[in-house]
């Protein structure tokens, strides 16, 4: 059966502030999802609601049709890696792996050991003695070694150096290839994962701004640059997301697809996911 998480018309308020405002999203099938948004967009709140660490003010969330609150059958299908350590501070890594196996039968100890070697994580160390980076790596290894139908990573690479980030992304794909599952990666570091994610959900101030295949987002806009006057006359009547001027040169991010031939003097370029994301946000902000 296809794994399905249904977020239905969720609103979450903290006192007077609204973290999520009537959000509906369906996560479906063994795909790599990207949950994208700036700091404070509502990503972590949504993940906490999905894993029953928070309760919604309004709305429901179901996993394979079963409501999440207090429901072990639903919750056991999800595993969420956050920046919080769930193990006693003075527990050694090795012991923590053993405990993880007790709580989650789907945890593969052999995989965890081999990943610890790849990351050069010393299993004899106590969890609280790990550096910030290795603390993250320790939690990522658990996420990469657990074979629940859905694994969620909340800001997975914070605190990791470039080499370890690279390694994490590679191991994530390896896991996905070895044990196809639903992966949800929440991050504001878009450029790094744009080629990894099949489907993107963009949150903005507690609402869903985009929810579609990443490929569609990549093709949703293009950039045009050239002398200011030429660009300006080209832009008239078009849906312009953002524009920047540098000296006599103007670059604009335009929604839609360009015509086959651009007027002479104008240069066409693709817009990558991160630039498109920034343009979308800037456009929203100027409304």
């Amino acid at each position: 059966m296809k794994m399905q998480i249904e977020v239905h018309d969720i609103t979450k308020r903290f006192g007077k502030s609204t973290a999520l405002d009537h959000v509906s999203i369906t996560f479906s099938g063994n795909k790599i999802y990207g949950l994208l948004g700036n700091n404070g967009a509502g990503k972590s709140t949504l993940l906490n609601l999905m894993t029953d660490r928070l309760r919604p003010t309004e709305g429901t969330i179901t996993v394979d049709g079963q409501p999440v609150p207090n429901n072990d059958a639903a919750l056991s299908k999800l595993f969420c890696v956050t920046d919080q350590n769930l193990f006693p501070d003075d527990m050694k890594v090795r012991k923590a792996f053993e405990v993880a196996k007790l709580f989650h039968p789907e945890f593969d100890r052999n995989v965890a050991d081999s990943l610890a070697q790849k990351f050069e994580l010393n299993e004899k160390k106590k969890v609280n003695a790990l550096s910030t980076g290795y603390g993250s790596i320790f939690r990522l290894i658990i996420g990469l070694s657990i074979n629940t139908p859905c694994v969620i990573f909340d800001e997975p690479v914070l605190g990791l150096d470039a080499r370890h980030r690279d390694l994490f992304y590679q191991l994530l794909i390896q896991k996905y290839a070895d044990h196809p599952c639903m992966l949800i990666i929440s991050t504001h570091l878009i450029e790094e994962i744009s080629n990894l994610i099949e489907h993107s959900v963009i949150l903005y101030h507690g609402t869903v701004l985009k929810d579609c295949p990443t490929e569609e987002l990549m093709a949703a806009a293009y950039s045009v640059s050239g002398p200011i006057q030429l660009v300006d006359s080209y832009l008239s009547g078009k849906h312009v997301l953002t524009q920047k001027v540098l000296g006599g040169l103007k670059t604009a991010c335009v929604h839609g697809k360009p015509a086959n031939r651009l007027p002479a003097g104008l240069e066409l370029a693709n817009v990558n996911l991160q630039d498109y994301f920034i343009s979308l946000i800037e456009e929203e902000e100027s409304k």
């Binding site: 790599i32 794909i173 996905y176 290839a177 080629n195 990894l196 099949e198």
Partner: peptide
């Protein structure tokens, strides 16, 4: 996909 870090 692992080498280039792209979706399978």
């Amino acid at each position: 996909s692992v080498t280039y870090k792209i979706n399978p």
